[in-house]
Design a binder for these strands. Sequence first.
DNA 1: CCATAATCGAGACGGTACGTCAGGTCTTATG
DNA 2: CATAAGACCTGACGTACCGTCTCGATTATGG
Lengths: 196, 196, 196, 196
Amino acid sequence: MSKSPDPARRSERSRQAVLEAARELVSEMGYAKVSIEAIAARAGVGKQTIYRWWRSKGAVIFDAFLALSQVGDSITLPDTGDIEADLKLVMRATVAEFADPGFEAPIRALTMEIVNDPDLAAQYREKLAGPVDEAKKARLRSAQRAGQIDADADLDLALELLYAPLFQRWLHRSGPLTPEYADALVDLALKALRPA
Amino acid sequence: MSKSPDPARRSERSRQAVLEAARELVSEMGYAKVSIEAIAARAGVGKQTIYRWWRSKGAVIFDAFLALSQVGDSITLPDTGDIEADLKLVMRATVAEFADPGFEAPIRALTMEIVNDPDLAAQYREKLAGPVDEAKKARLRSAQRAGQIDADADLDLALELLYAPLFQRWLHRSGPLTPEYADALVDLALKALRPA
Amino acid sequence: MSKSPDPARRSERSRQAVLEAARELVSEMGYAKVSIEAIAARAGVGKQTIYRWWRSKGAVIFDAFLALSQVGDSITLPDTGDIEADLKLVMRATVAEFADPGFEAPIRALTMEIVNDPDLAAQYREKLAGPVDEAKKARLRSAQRAGQIDADADLDLALELLYAPLFQRWLHRSGPLTPEYADALVDLALKALRPA
Amino acid sequence: MSKSPDPARRSERSRQAVLEAARELVSEMGYAKVSIEAIAARAGVGKQTIYRWWRSKGAVIFDAFLALSQVGDSITLPDTGDIEADLKLVMRATVAEFADPGFEAPIRALTMEIVNDPDLAAQYREKLAGPVDEAKKARLRSAQRAGQIDADADLDLALELLYAPLFQRWLHRSGPLTPEYADALVDLALKALRPA
DNA sequence: CCATAATCGAGACGGTACGTCAGGTCTTATG
DNA sequence: CATAAGACCTGACGTACCGTCTCGATTATGG
């Protein structure tokens, strides 16, 4: 009765080939210039096989990089007891990641999809951002317990305060992304979150 | 010597028609589904006329909304002397603007272009974000003079602290955009910017 | 190894639709004004389907009329034993055909292609002119056996002597095409071919 | 009141430049690929100047080669008293001309125009073919007077008999164009024209 | 241990849009 | 006022992909 394909019969070989081809092509020519046709050709796969298992080009590429960054069962951020030092470490790492030209294409590709497609945005929040944010909030909660951060602080807002400026600067290319920037951002955010 | 078209001979009528058609079409069907072909048809203009004066679909649409939001010679933010009240007013307005479904399509369209095209990103910063940011920084400077904000604060960073969280929440649809959110954001940011 | 399309997968329905559309359009508006775009539209076929199977507009139109005039396995000209009467009959028919306004457009279209494209000229000779000429030469050979024509005559040249004047007069519109003209031409040619 | 341009004001310099450019371009890239735009550019002339003075691309190109082959006030064919020898001489020359690859492009260009455009065909007959044919007929008339050709022969038909086979063979590329062919053709035609 | 049904690769199909070329008209400024 | 220049609208070009649709040729159970 159902018309949806039977996942049990899905060819894992084809799935992997498609995702890998997608990753390669996005890296080589940028998100916009990648076509389903090209992915199928590179993967040695029929177009129908892609259409059978993915809703759109965006979904394929999204999956491709999702699978890549798939986080383990649980992530934990460093916790030395010094929230400032720990955050600066993490933020400097994040800055470095964004500055890496190899990450440029895929992250922008992911972002494009998220801007356009609410479904993918939800999937992104659930599968990628969510777990990471949970880990970050866990570290902030630890800082709250240690009295380094206001116990009443809204941690979602706190995360935005820390990460959104960095993300926006990268997205709009509105300024340099340096370790100093990361430090300054942490300093400022922590000032905002300081216990009353 | 040059082979680029002579701007003196440009038809203002055609230029306006194209920009208006672009605006209409983006509003009606969303950025992704708009084609240069459709813009030309709607504007009653030859495709070549578009290609003569714009580099890409993105450039046209960008121009269309740029022209729309083209700010007057100078923008000034309200300055009642109370930075908190003034910022909350402005931020609530910004939140309202982002929440307005009528703005959704064009702003996402603009954002898409900026993500993809460094040239347009630069143009965006120069023509749109720049002047607005200057006005915002002017208000912050006034608050610095009034001793409401740390005199040593990096105002670029301060702006990011205020606006980036809002922008990211909208972009990723990661939370509600309410007046309360605006207030909370201002409170937090001002705490970070408070004089030492 | 080859990248050319697989003829086995070719859609006969599409092929027929294209050829018919081509014939109709040439008849309606003349060769020069027919476009591949129009043929595709009329045939309810994608442009690519035409480009996949034909090299050029000329090739399509050529095929269209080739298919139309496709001769059966063998053609035989009348043979009453009187070469003069038989030839006059055939030549009068040919004259009538050329004078028929309904044949004008397609024949001129075919001729245009032949003038420009050596490949199509070869195809024309092989598929259309060749078989017909063979039939004509068979009749002349019969006349040779009957002693009505010089046994040593070069039959290719003989055919040219008979048909080229008619064709040129039609092509250049340099004179009337009447039954009398046909008769006069036969008389003259037969005089040239008379046994020594 | 009239809208047609005043020929008196026509720029001879422009006219020459256009015709020369047309000739060059046809020789370089073949009739079909020449555009009015290219002719104008090469001639250093505004497109309008071409449209003002010529009806179509065909008319320009036609004019270009017409001007080139413009025959002097009168042409005369050799007349040694031996019609066979004289005709063979002329026909061999004609064969050579047709076989010359340098003549190929322009003659085919002219022919294309004539096939399609009755007006140009008329012009061709009047300005080019006509005078030449008159000269040929004059030679045949001389042969009639000398008793080498039937006095009652229709000279128009006689010309066709001589030249059409050659022309058709060239047009359809249906056989080699050699001096021997010229001779054979003359022999055959003269046999047809022999006095009774 | 096959039978049979879904998936697979391939790629033709009807389409839409691309970015380019040229057609023929119109405007502008020179001479 | 004809000209060189070239922008304009139009329409066709030939190409790239879209998403759908057959085709055999594998698979991979489940009867």
